[in-house]
């Protein structure tokens, strides 16, 4: 055998030891996590309930599902409210995120300020959605308006994070080119920066809208509007058919929104 080959053999990356350590580490973490599992709540009733829920999903309460007028029991109206909360909340969040994003973008404010901004964004993200919901209910009272404000504040974190990435990706060459034409500061922002940002910003907001509609379905749990209250109340009273109607409402609306949102976003990105 040629010495060069043996030499190359000795230079091989030793991944086995590293991989084994990583694997053992992962196993230890999982075994440690398993310790949290508590099966105390399981009883023979569970199977019956599971069957009842599946039965109900096949035959949900149609009176609720196809009722377009009654307050509180009309699934279409409740889902409309849920979507409205998600929609208004997204617009609120997308607007509120703008200052946070511009004040945290490294290429605009520099590294120190950017770190401060990112920390503030992280702090806002720490507030769980229900805590925000309950805090806003102290202002508006229970109802969908509290939901809108909650969704708005809760989406600031993620939206501004994505905004920051978009801003930091800006192509600076265009600004230089505009400089060469003698453009003013305002003109540079208007023609050099804004066009680069809008499509991606809108795409981000639409993406978050999908998530927000899903989140709006659970806000009812703390009284902040949407279909959540009806769903939890029906589950709590073992009214499976009513709960199933609410679940179907969520499925249909979320699926439709996902399809539309994917279409719009792919058009936005492809620049049509």
């Amino acid at each position: 055998m040629k010495p060069a080959i043996l030499e190359m053999y000795d230079k091989r990356p030793r991944t086995l030891v590293r991989n084994t350590i990583l694997f053992v580490l992962m196993a230890v973490i999982l075994v440690w996590s398993w310790e949290t599992m508590d099966y105390g709540g399981i009883n023979e009733n569970g199977a019956v309930v599971a069957r009842n829920i599946l039965d109900a999903l096949i035959r949900p309460n149609e009176a609720w599902l196809f009722n377009f007028t009654a307050t509180g029991t009309s699934i279409p109206l409740l889902m409309l409210e849920t979507v409205a909360i998600g929609f208004l909340g997204t617009i609120l969040g997308a607007i509120l995120a703008l200052p946070f994003a511009f004040l945290s973008a490294r290429n605009i404010v520099g590294p120190v300020m950017s770190n401060v901004g990112n920390t503030i964004i992280s702090i806002i993200r720490t507030f769980p959605i229900f805590i925000l919901g309950l805090m806003f209910i102290r202002v508006t009272g229970p109802g969908p308006l509290a939901g809108v404000l909650t969704i708005g504040i809760a989406s600031i974190g993620m939206i501004s994070k994505l905004y920051v990435e978009i801003i930091e990706d800006i192509d600076k060459g265009i600004l230089l080119a505009l400089d060469a034409t003698g453009a003013t500061r305002f003109q540079k922002i208007r023609y050099g920066i804004i066009p680069q940002l809008t499509a991606n910003f809108i795409s981000t907001a639409i993406y978050r809208f999908e998530i927000n509609v899903r989140n709006a379905t659970i806000l009812g749990l703390v009284g902040a509007g949407g279909i959540g209250f009806t769903l939890i109340a029906a589950l709590g009273a073992y009214r499976w058919k009513d709960a199933a109607a609410a679940l179907w409402g969520i499925i249909v609306v979320v699926l439709v929104i996902e399809i539309i949102s994917t279409k719009i976003r792919s058009k936005l990105v492809s620049g049509e």
Binding site: A4, I5, L6, M8, Y9, K11, R12, L16
Partner: peptide, 25 residues
Amino acid sequence: GLYSRDDKLLALESLDNVGILEKAY
């Protein structure tokens, strides 16, 4: 992905045969 020493040497030898031993990794 546990290959034997012989297999690894054979693989390196094959790479050497076509002149790109130094690109092995």
